[in-house]
Nucleic acid binder design. Structure first.
Length: 122
DNA sequence: AGTATGACTCATC
DNA sequence: AGATGAGCCATAC
């Protein structure tokens, strides 16, 4: 059948349903709010797939995607300190009122509590 | 099939 | 809080 052959030719990541859910979860982050890779993965229905979120972000070319609102579980920026990406993320976060101290945002994201799914910096 | 490599996480110290 | 080591997931060789 044709559809069967089409599936083989489809570019993998971009049309993958899980990836779409990850992107949706990231886009759902309002200005000034952040979440960890793991939290995003969980919200996308993929618990334990933090690295997949990171990989997707690394490949995504969507300029509108609020990638800068995604941090490591400890609230720190995932890029090597001093790198261009690091400074850029820092800049974007602070532009939204998020406080960043030495590459780390104030208050770690509490991803385990239902009522703390989203949080805002002071 | 085995190994290396990440925008990761967690437990420990 | 910072450093370390072991898991984990997905891809690329």
């Amino acid at each position: 059948m044709l559809a069967r052959n089409m599936a083989r030719l489809d570019p993998p990541a971009a049309h993958d349903a899980p990836d779409q859910r990850i992107l949706a979860a990231i886009r759902a982050l309002p200005r000034g709010q952040v979440a960890s890779y793991g939290a995003i993965a969980r919200r996308a229905g993929l618990p334990g797939r933090a690295r997949r979120v990171a990989r997707l972000l690394a490949r995504s070319e969507d300029p509108g995607l609020p990638w800068h609102r995604v941090l490591r579980a400890d609230g720190r920026i995932a890029f090597p300190p001093g790198s261009d990406a690091f400074r850029e993320q820092c800049r974007r976060l602070q532009a939204e009122g998020v406080q960043v101290v030495r590459g780390r945002v104030r208050l770690p994201p509490a991803e385990d509590d239902l009522d703390a799914v989203l949080w805002r910096p002071r």
